[in-house]
Amino acid sequence: MKNAITGMITRVQRMSIHDGPGIRTTLFLKGCNFRCRWCHNPETWRRETQVERIGERCVACGACTLVCGSGALRMENGAVRLDRERCDACGRCADVCPAQAMNLVGKAVSVDDVMQELQRDIPYFEESGGGVTVSGGEPLLQPLFVRELLLHCRAGGIPTAVETNLSVPSGLIAGLLPLVDLWMCDLKAADDGLHRRWTGVSNARTVANLRLLGERNVPLIVRTPVVPGVNDTPEAIGAICTLLKGVGSLLYYELLGFHTLGADKFTGLGMENPMPGAEPLPPERLESLRAVAAGTGINVK
């Protein structure tokens, strides 16, 4: 019998080497409870399907306007205009666009669908020590789907990792512990006020669940996206490291340099970019902050 539990995802990324050990297949789920201003995956903020319009690809052929049933697309002065208030994300425009200027972001998939795709990658997992990583957005906002998928992976001998902000009830984390081989958490700031300012959410749950994972001796990787003007100071990084020194099961801490790949996504989704004009940190600046982290005595990658 086909498994009826479905999840909403943006994509399945095969052959990933950045989402845990070995070669991995990473599943990106839609929906997030943070609103990090520097986010490079804004397509995961909302749970529902969205239309992405890549304006520079549009050849103004008008094919999309002919199939749009909601009246959201029209020709105006030789160009295609999209009224997002009227768009119902039906996908007809994406189906007929010859230039792939219109794309649907987000689709519902069943656990069986995902497992069928993962079966193809098992030889790579076995050879490299990899597995499946469930990411987002915030994947634990779809707990039933994630739990069912992890159960199937465990039954199939597929190693599992969850990439999460940990800002969910502790009972949810505790219930998943037998099904997850590796937890990966982004900790944006140790200071709660700083965290609230830049993500819109307190870090209290994240910190509490980090301590829970440490108490349970669960393998854990913590990463910080280092964003200019937000947390790119020795004080901010040092405070995070001080907090992490109390987490005994930490495998390592990693600093991730901010990049601007999300800027075009905000535009394509018709969303306002909260940090327009932000630039990546110079490599030497990031390296100096890594030295600060390493100087606190924790293991830094």
Rank of each mutant, 00 (worst) to 15 (best):
C87P: 02
G78M: 04
P159Q: 11
V146R: 10
T65V: 05
V111K: 08
D121M: 12
N77S: 08
A161L: 09
P159H: 13
A89W: 01
A72L: 04
T160R: 13
L141V: 14
L104T: 05
C68R: 01
S70P: 00
M102G: 00
L118P: 01
E127G: 01
V146Q: 08
L151K: 15
S135T: 13
G136A: 12
V114Y: 03
D112S: 06
L166W: 09
C61W: 09
G91I: 14
V105P: 00
Q119I: 05
V168K: 11
R57N: 04
M75C: 11
G171H: 06
P123V: 13
D88R: 01
C58E: 06
N165S: 15
C68D: 07
E138Y: 14
G157I: 11
S110H: 14
P159A: 13
Y124E: 00
N165R: 04
S128K: 08
C61V: 02
C97P: 09
P143V: 05
L140P: 06
T160N: 12
D113L: 02
G106N: 03
A89L: 01
C61D: 11
L141S: 10
R86E: 01
C58N: 05
G130L: 12
R81D: 00
G91Y: 03
V105W: 09
V96R: 05
V146K: 12
Q142R: 14
S110A: 14
V105K: 08
S70D: 03
D95N: 08
C153Y: 15
E126V: 15
A99G: 03
L144A: 12
C97K: 03
C87V: 00
A72E: 07
G62W: 00
V105A: 09
D112Y: 12
V132K: 08
R53V: 01
V162A: 04
G71M: 00
A174C: 05
M75Q: 06
A94E: 11
H152M: 13
F145S: 06
E126H: 15
T65R: 00
T164A: 11
R84N: 02
I158K: 10
I158C: 07
V111N: 09
I122R: 15
C68K: 02
R53L: 07
K107D: 11
A72K: 00
A174W: 11
L144F: 07
A108E: 15
